[in-house]
Design a protein around this nucleic acid. Structure first.
Lengths: 161, 161
DNA sequence: TATTGTTATACTCTATAACTATA
DNA sequence: TATAGTTATAGAGTATAACAATA
């Protein structure tokens, strides 16, 4: 049972491959984030807010976090001058979150850097492979979004204008 | 400006696709982990220890963590009875980490569950698409491993014997 | 009463710096 | 001195539960 041989290249199954890829991408995100003195979560928040001005609960649902976690997250983003709370709604309970100009600027440059570094990761693939990969991943993401009724299309890290 | 592909207005480019996929996979891992009252990091630790008995520093390098972070991580794993420190080396400074029987059992069932749930995520692809995807991702991972001189081949979440 | 959001609390995770023990 | 590891400390991130304000 424990006589495992070393894994050969073609023995890395799709499950392990995807899990390891997710760690690799998260590591890239972490590196970019810390180069701007941010965390991955804040980077993600900035990306989301580029296209939206969500209420706290919407943000929580979108990020799969508890509302109290989002409270703290937005607290820290406000403290750094990256986002702010606004209360424009007719419903006095609702608080929306929006980027400050500084936050928007940072979101833009960070997303460019992410673009460069993630592209560097897939550079080992030929152009055709990258196109194939993008298509396959998109299919997975859209199927998952459909399953969960989530609005996937908002970019997360953004693309250049 | 990057002269990489010009992104269409409403398209999810490869960068965003990979980033979102990484969040999706991490979310699956988090769900599985918490179903066993674990965290993703501990799940990852268990997966790594299935095939290895690394020294603390080796573990730190492998997981991209500081040695002090690994100290705390292993502390918590020991407290839960999942792993333990052993000192078998001739070098009295070296501490190796190994799974307990409980830890090994948990690693096995958790990796099976991860297999099921990650497979569910890629179920929207036809068999041929999954094969293609696995090949492309493997290529990325091996290129990255070669770049960084890391031993990629140890599985991270494992597969069944 | 139900919903939206915040606060209090407790834990994990992480890094930096200072420390101990062995080489 | 150099290396392997731990400890002290501080901060981010997270969830649960209790709370306040509005609907």
């Amino acid at each position: 049972m424990n006589e495992r041989k070393a894994l050969e290249a073609d023995e890395l199954g799709i499950v392990d491959a995807l899990v390891q890829l997710s760690f690799l991408i998260q590591h890239v995100l972490g590196r970019v984030a810390s180069s701007y003195e941010l965390t991955v979560v804040h980077l993600r928040l900035l990306g989301i807010l580029r296209d939206r001005e969500p209420a706290m609960l919407e943000l929580a649902r979108y990020m799969n976090l508890d509302k109290s976690s989002v409270s703290g997250l937005v607290d820290r983003a406000e403290r750094r001058g990256l986002a702010r709370r606004v209360t424009t709604s007719a419903d006095g309970r609702v608080v929306r979150v929006t980027l400050t100009p500084d936050g928007r600027r940072l979101a833009t440059v960070a997303s460019e850097e992410i673009g460069r570094q993630v592209n560097a990761v897939v550079e080992s693939l030929p152009e055709a492979g990258r196109t194939q990969l993008a298509g396959l991943v998109r299919q997975i993401l859209f199927a998952d979004a459909a399953r969960h009724g989530v609005d996937l299309l908002a970019r997360v890290v953004g693309k250049d204008e």
